[in-house]
Design a protein around this nucleic acid. Structure first.
Length: 666
DNA sequence: ATACATACC
DNA sequence: GACTGGTATGTAT
């Protein structure tokens, strides 16, 4: 069933960038896009906001130009080299394809708007939006017919649809209904992942097996159950991984579902004609860049232009793009995600009045402190976010010795940060605390640290209570997400499925990007969060001191005058991890998990070569030796990192505890 | 560690 | 009549 339905999506003309809003979301069928575009443009034109958007646009265009220039400079040799790199990566990714799971992505239809309509039936059938004149959160389908949609300012929406009814947001209501849906999800997958109040991922592999039914049937059952419990409709996508399931849930929205069979051909066919913008993690900017710099419009083209992707982007970004081209995505159920930061920000009418600005800062500090204390959190890094009257964003941070959480402490440090920016005219001030730790003065707290300490001290690699501290993409949009799932999962963002989502930034150094290329071609898995204990690297010197010097003699020959990219890339070809473990040059062993270390190690050899050849000060003198650790450490660390299984701990914690203490660290 | 950019709901 | 708020993460320096 997969196939053709996709084409309908493909057909969408995404005459891109015109103005500010790009999205081609569902429910916009009979919309006169030309007209909408024109009105949006006219309503924005000349504003400070608009001017800032133009600046950003110009910057992106320049970035694209730079990339095109780099593409043009690639020689046939470069291209064939990167072609090989791409092919190798594609093979590796393909080899890891997992079609054994059945993932379901459930997405409530126009959630906020639907909930508001439930509580006020008179809104049914009328164009309505949840939000304010400044910003709309969600629009119902009647309003979408006019081009009104989420993330659009209310005053523009009203222009598009004069009859539009505005309803203020009421999170309590949404949370209540969200919880009802989650109770349903829990029955099908106790470890389901909430992506936000209105979205969730369920691994229904087991349920399907138990009940002897298909993913399609389960999806229908769940949707019916959700409707029964809430009176709200939702859409679902069923596929072998989360990335695909998410794309699928959007296809027959609203109140529909789409099943992509767990069959390689079906997946490949499905993904091939899919516009890249449909993929979670590929937004407006990335779409623009890939299209205008590389001519990539569909996922299939990600593979066709694999060589350019590998040549222009960082390793992680390239890998993400290639996996998208293959229709790969995550199939695991990550363990607990910890909140990484907590913040509060407010927009107000622009002012340069210092007294006013300080008053605002004070309010934000208080609100943030309240939120933190509500969750028993303390943080060590404070970041001040500012948006100038011209819409430019700035951030200023300080990392303290101690964790803080009182409004007094927060304000004290925030004031210093703000003072340094004066005079300035602002329209927004925000504060964010990160490097969080659970409060309680004397108590150790933070399970993460505790386990880490425990690990180092005891050398225990069993991961018994260590596990899961790794972090990938995830997030947790709402506090409520933490609740419901605390038991096990936690929330997860819906964004990057495969891995990184982000695009790198322009160009810039080849060298660094090129370096990524080969050094770690064998490392897919790893998510490095390499916990490195500086103090443990002491003995390292000798490990590498030895054999490293007799480097690659061959490599040196290429270092001459030509494109440095070429020479270094060729050199890299000589640099391999024997058996996926041992450096082919000096014999140092490093597990695939050590992505960063491997890169540095690779850099080191390259730098050595350069120095030998000429002066060479190219590469930064980071001594990989400091990164090389003795074998025992490597082994134990890698084991710890693998921490595949061993989720346990979470299960011993009573749910109530999470409510009381904010679950944060589990 | 800090600053900035991108993404998603 | 003037373009949100919260969180995460990648990249560069």
């Amino acid at each position: 069933m997969a196939k053709s339905e996709t084409s309908s999506d493909t057909a969408r003309p995404w005459q891109s960038y015109h103005t500010v809003y790009t999205n081609a979301k569902a429910g916009m069928d009979g919309v006169d896009k030309e007209k909408v575009q024109r009105i949006v443009y006219e309503m924005s034109k000349g504003s400070k906001y608009f001017e800032n958007e133009e600046r950003k646009e110009a910057f992106i265009r320049q970035k694209i130009e730079t990339m095109r220039a780099r593409c043009a400079k690639l020689t046939a040799t470069d291209i064939s080299h990167f072609q090989m790199v791409a092919e190798k990566r594609i093979l590796e990714l393909e080899a890891a394809r997992n079609l054994s799971r059945i993932w379901l992505h459930v997405d409530m239809d126009a959630f906020y708007a639907a909930v508001e309509t439930l509580s006020n039936p008179s809104l049914a059938g009328k164009p309505m939006a949840v939000g304010t004149m400044s910003m709309i959160s969600t629009a119902n389908y009647e309003a979408r017919k006019f081009g009104v949609r989420a993330a659009m300012p209310g005053f523009i929406a009203r222009k598009l649809c004069p009859e539009l009814i505005f309803v203020p947001t009421d999170f309590k209501k949404y949370t209540y209904y969200s919880d009802l849906t989650r109770k349903v999800f829990q029955k099908y997958d106790p470890n389901f992942m909430a992506a936000s109040l209105d979205e969730a991922y369920l691994d229904v592999t087991e349920v399907c097996k138990e009940k002897g039914v298909t993913g399609e049937e389960i999806a229908k059952e769940i949707r019916a159950s959700v409707f029964e419990e809430t009176g709200l409709t939702c859409s679902a996508g069923v596929a072998a991984n989360r990335l695909l399931a998410k794309v699928c849930s959007d296809i027959n929205k609203p109140n529909g579902q789409f099943v992509l069979p767990n069959n390689r051909m079906a997946v490949v066919t499905f993904i091939s004609s899919l516009p890249i913008r449909k993929i979670g993690g590929i937004g407006k900017v990335t779409e623009h860049i890939l299209r205008d710099a590389l001519g990539i419009n569909t996922c299939e083209e990600m593979l066709q232009k694999g060589s350019y992707i590998c040549a222009l982007f960082s390793q992680s970004t390239a890998e993400f793009f290639l996996s998208v081209g293959l229709g790969l995505g995550r199939t695991d159920t990550p363990e607990v995600r910890l909140r990484k930061s907590i913040s509060n920000e407010r927009t107000f009418s622009a002012t340069g009045d210092e007294t006013l600005l300080y008053r605002k800062l004070e309010e934000i500090a208080e609100m943030l402190s309240t939120d933190m204390q509500k969750e028993g959190l303390c943080g060590r890094t404070l970041t001040l976010k500012l948006k100038t009257a011209a819409f430019e964003l700035r951030s200023r941070a300080v990392t303290l010795q101690k964790h803080i959480c009182t409004s007094k402490d927060i304000l004290k440090h925030a004031s210093k940060l703000l003072k340094a920016e004066l005079p300035i005219s602002l329209r927004l001030i925000g504060l964010r605390m990160s490097h969080l730790n659970e409060e309680r003065d004397g108590v150790p707290l933070d399970p993460t640290q505790k386990t880490l300490t425990h690990f180092m001290v005891s050398g225990d690699a069993s991961g018994k209570d260590v596990d899961e501290q790794r972090s990938f993409g995830h997030e947790a949009h709402d506090i409520s997400d933490y609740f419901v799932n605390k038991e096990k999962s936690d929330s997860f963002t819906g964004s990057h499925e495969t891995r990184h989502t982000h695009i790198d930034h322009l160009d810039s150094n080849h060298s660094s990007e090129l370096n990524d290329d080969n050094c770690t071609f064998d490392s897919n898995a790893a998510e490095m969060e390499t916990v490195h204990n500086p103090s443990s690297d002491v003995t390292a010197d000798k490990v590498q001191g030895t054999s490293c010097l007799n480097t690659v003699t061959n490599g040196a020959n290429f270092l001459e005058g030509e494109a440095e990219a070429v020479s270094s890339s060729r050199q890299r070809e000589l640099f391999l991890w024997v058996n996926g473990y041992k450096c082919s040059i000096c014999g140092t062993e490093m597990p695939p998990d050590f992505v960063e270390e491997r890169q540095e190690h690779c850099d080191f050899h390259l730098a050595e070569n350069l120095q030998k050849e000429e002066s060479g000060t190219e590469f930064r003198s980071s001594n990989p030796r400091q990164r090389v650790v003795c074998k025992a450490q490597i082994v134990s660390q890698s084991q710890r990192k693998k921490r595949k299984s061993s989720p346990k701990e979470g299960r011993h914690i009573p749910i109530d505890l999470f409510f009381v203490k904010s679950n944060q660290n589990f």
